[in-house]
Design a protein around this nucleic acid. Structure first.
Lengths: 331, 331
DNA sequence: CTGAAAGCGCTAACAG
DNA sequence: CTGTTAGCGCTTTCAG
């Protein structure tokens, strides 16, 4: 029991002073490896990010940063993993004791990492919702509520015919869940309010957006409200609408689901539902810490109680310049 | 010398088989802490990222991903640090033996972390160039050459009056170096070729861009070539030019310094010099590995030879749809 | 309240 | 080529 003992034992003032002076003088740094070996905790949290850099990059980045800073506030470090290594990375990192816990980003509905998470002796937290959340701890934005919220806002302004411009088709095929959930929320609320809607996936490119818009106004010329959930489509959308002589918000109202930074940097500041990336990262770490604490509390470190925790963050809509009253029906 | 011994010793077939079978059966995982303690290497590389999420986010992300995947290919893991902890993070991580080496991103001209890097007993690699590179190992895009390259391209097309739309003023004030270096390259080449140029910083917003453009065409109505170095300004720039009735590339040619993804997602595909984020990350790891190897080679692990290595990546310009011959002087 | 001692699971050096 | 052994620097338990 050499030194300061991290306050686990009561220490008298003189001893503590003596020790702390020596620490200063010798430039002492406790050795991480030795500490990990003796205590069987590394004080490291692994964060597994998607390698794919084609979607929501700023959001991913912000989550990672929030995880890193929050972890440090709790005295933990973060190990950065990518999914290129495959699901086995979970076993490698946990099995070797390199990390005490894991945070998984970009969780898919049937995620290949889930079996490993279930058999892992260490706590994990998912950012995103898989199909079956049983026994898991998850954080995510409540995308169903997000969809409903967007519809509510447009409905209050008198819009009756809506269109959703979603993520690229590939995103839906990958079953990432969040895209579908938003659409479901929109559908529900549209049905409840007796409105009409159309849904078109869209890549980030101008061509793709041009196509999507053409099909929308072709099938439903009366469309006056658009909900976009696709960061990179926002710029093209606004440019094209302007090019087509459709004024925002006089002719068309636009609600985006995107980070605030994107919403405020466009030509017309966008009414939007923010993606609370920072809070998602922070919450994930806090849930991890809670689970780590709980594990230690159990006398003989009983197997974790296999609790299911799903923390859905409530969406918040910020009204900016891109939404307004529906134009009067001229006819 | 219990097991497979990672091939440091020659092992006979039968023994190896026996051992490997046991490993499989028992689901054995070498303990990271113990290994680190015994070998005094953690096989972890620390990566320190800027917390600031206002600039070049996709580039930062891509670098981080490249570092993570390349590190894994070399059997190393990556510890994610942010600069919120301050420069002391370097000492903490290296001093405790948590990491064997460091990669620092977003290096400023007079970076506060440099003194700690110099006194650190472990190798570091910087991504970016500080003012004084003596004794350091750095990787970066050759921004001076980038500036020259942009000018060359426009000059070949007959453009005589150029304008550079740069990063936000704050970036220059922070002395990150790369912004200045690009401008220097542009200035040099403009002078050599007897052209004229203007330089205006610019935030990412429409308003800021509108202001910058107004001042440019006000002072130099004959400007026909624009060089943009500011990801988030690209969208606004193109929109505003179109709005003002200036056709790209017929009236105005635009060369961007930005990731390829940005260059290809705009309304007019941009002629651009790519920021080789992936390669920067990969090279950084390779330099780290080389230094780690070199350190081990020295008999008594002699203090590193304090070598200076500055690896500047050559810029490559891709011609796309945004540049063309300068319009004939009508007069 | 504080000293002493026993490992944690590995690597590296030493004998065979 | 292979078995044995001595620590690596901490945390934790056991005596005082």
């Amino acid at each position: 029991m050499s030194y300061v003992l991290s306050g686990k034992r009561t220490i008298s003032a003189p001893t503590r002073e003596r020790v702390e002076r020596s620490i200063q003088q010798l430039g002492y740094h406790p050795n991480a490896g030795a500490r990990a070996l003796a205590s069987s905790r590394s004080d490291i949290i692994a964060l597994m990010m998607p390698l794919r850099t084609d979607m929501y990059v700023p959001v991913m980045m912000e989550i990672a940063m929030a995880v890193a800073t929050t972890a440090r506030e709790h005295g933990r470090d973060v190990l950065l993993l990518t999914d290129q290594e495959g699901p086995e990375a979970v076993r490698r990192v946990i099995g070797s004791g390199l990390a005490d816990a894991m945070i998984l980003m970009d969780v898919e509905l049937e995620d290949a990492r889930l079996p490993l998470v279930h058999e892992s002796p260490r706590p994990s937290v998912l950012i995103g919702l898989p199909a079956d959340t049983d026994g898991l701890t998850c954080v995510d934005l409540d995308f169903v509520a997000t969809g409903r919220l967007c519809v509510d806002h447009l409905a209050e302004l008198g819009h009756q015919e809506l269109a959703v411009i979603g993520e690229a088709a590939a995103v839906y095929e990958r079953h990432t869940g969040f895209a579908e959930r938003t659409i479901n929320g929109v559908r529900e609320r549209v049905a409840e309010l007796g409105l009409r809607m159309l849904h078109r996936p869209c890549e980030g490119s101008f061509e793709s957006m041009a196509g999507a818009l053409a099909r929308i106004f072709d099938e439903r010329p009366g469309t006056t409200g658009i909900i976009v959930q696709n960061e990179s489509a926002v710029g093209p959308l606004l440019s094209l609408l302007r090019q087509q002589g459709r004024a925002v918000p006089e002719d068309i109202s636009v609600v985006a689901v995107c980070p605030d930074q994107v919403a405020t940097q466009t030509s017309v500041a966008l009414t939007s539902v923010a993606i609370p990336a920072h809070e998602m990262g922070r919450r994930a770490v806090e849930l991890v810490m809670a689970k780590l604490g709980a594990a230690g509390a159990g006398r003989a470190r009983a197997a974790a109680p296999r609790e299911t925790v799903v923390r859905l963050l409530s969406p918040r809509l910020t009204v900016r310049a891109s939404t307004g009253h529906a134009p009067r029906l001229v006819r």
